[in-house]
């Protein structure tokens, strides 16, 4: 009986768990974490920000020259803020809607266009719980500043809120 029980334990230990598989990063079977910003949160906030940004009058015509400013990560989670910015800059640059200035110095500085707009922002978090239910809200704030006048011409805030007792997979 002892041997049989040990064997049963071993089978369960070996057979337990789900093997790692590849998932569509744009799909709906991704891990939802309560204590961190997930990759799909950047995509959600980024795409909503993008839609709002292209609807602003500053982006109605031509391809304005854009410089990326500082995005402050004011959360406890350590991540690269370009995860958010790329969700805006990649579609905008590829669609020819902005001229994005590179951070590297130009070979011919005189040929480098001057920035018309600077995009800056902040990512914040708010956590609370009720009993075993935890809630995390991540606040994404972006502001587009017109360099010439030094005024904000577009600003947007998107909040991603997640609630539950443990991390999960899917929506």
């Amino acid at each position: 009986m002892n041997k049989f029980s040990l064997l049963a334990c071993a089978v369960f230990i070996v057979g337990c768990g789900t093997p790692a598989t590849y998932k569509d990063p744009q799909g709906r079977e991704l891990v939802v974490s309560l204590d961190k910003v997930n990759i799909q949160d950047f995509a959600t906030a980024g795409s909503q920000m993008l839609q709002s940004m292209v609807s602003s009058p500053s982006f109605s015509k031509g391809a304005p020259v854009l410089q990326l400013g500082t995005i402050t990560n004011d959360t406890a989670d350590n991540f690269d803020t370009s995860l958010l910015l790329s969700k805006l800059t990649v579609p905008l640059v590829n669609a020819g809607r902005v001229t994005l200035l590179d951070n590297e110095p130009a070979a011919d500085p005189s040929a480098r266009p001057k920035a018309e707009y600077v995009l800056k922002g902040k990512i914040l978090e708010d956590r609370s719980n009720a009993g075993s239910t935890r809630q995390s809200s991540f606040v994404f704030q972006l502001t587009l500043v017109e360099v010439k006048r030094g005024v904000a011409v577009w600003t947007e805030e998107k909040i991603v809120t997640k609630q539950g007792t443990k991390n999960a997979v899917g929506f």
Partner: peptide
């Protein structure tokens, strides 16, 4: 010990994500 091991196996079974899936 004789009774403990099957119990342990049962515990592992209950907490196993594969079964839940």
């Amino acid at each position: 010990m004789k009774h403990l091991l099957p119990l342990l196996a049962l515990g592992l079974l209950a907490g196993c994500s594969t079964v839940l899936e």
